[in-house]
Design a protein around this nucleic acid. Structure first.
Length: 189
DNA sequence: ATGGAGATAGTCT
DNA sequence: GACTATCTCCATC
């Protein structure tokens, strides 16, 4: 499992470091996991960030210390999962946008009601559905032995990282703060 | 392959 | 009361 220090860095740096990392969630129905292949960074100076206007009830987890989960509910039906970055007091984090499924694929198919492997986790709200991440995971630590955690890749594999414009936001779209593994077939677009 | 509308509810002004 | 860090379905090309 990745330790606390891994998360104590700038959100843009963390967004790149999270690519290739494995996200694991254990539930009573089984365990699901996948390789992170697409991320987006958000911080306080970013007009599009939930933390841009300061601390509120909804975003308070992002102002906590790095390595915790920030889960938000949006569009009346979707959850999205973020990894909080940096030091306590700074509101920054990384949105996990897409995964390559590894374990618990049958469970993911059942939860998503889809059979195509590429359709299971190729979007921020899709992966939370496939892995059963909800507001119950809000604020949870990702490095203290809980059911939701991150671990380094099994094997050292090399890949190149591409950077580009963010997706699905109204403000500050022009900021190149989306990162993905360039040859992955499991990204959101 | 691409595009638009609708669903649906929590959060903030 | 408006907006949303989205997805799915159905239309048309």
């Amino acid at each position: 499992m990745l330790g606390e220090d891994f998360f104590r860095k700038d959100s843009r740096e963390l967004a790149k470091d999270l690519l290739g990392v494995i996200l694991v969630h254990k539930t009573k129905d089984g365990t699901t996991s996948g390789v992170i292949v697409e991320t987006e960074s958000y911080h306080e100076d970013d007009e599009a960030s939930h933390t841009f206007g300061g601390k509120t009830r909804r975003n308070r987890a992002m102002f906590g210390p790095g390595g915790h989960a920030y889960v938000y509910f949006t569009y009346g039906m979707h959850y999205c999962f973020n990894v909080v970055a940096g030091e306590a007091g700074v509101g920054e984090g990384v949105l996990i946008r897409a995964l390559k499924p590894i374990n618990g694929i049958d469970l993911m198919k059942k939860r998503r009601n889809k059979n195509n492997l590429k359709e299971l986790c190729n979007g921020p709200a899709k992966l939370t559905q496939a892995m059963a991440i909800t507001k119950a995971n809000y604020g949870m630590s990702l490095f203290e032995g809980g059911d939701l955690y991150l671990k380094p890749p099994d094997e050292k594999h090399t890949f190149s990282i591409e950077t580009g414009l963010r997706i699905g936001i109204g403000k500050a779209q022009e900021k190149p703060w989306r990162f993905w593994i360039s040859d992955s077939k499991y990204t959101s677009r």
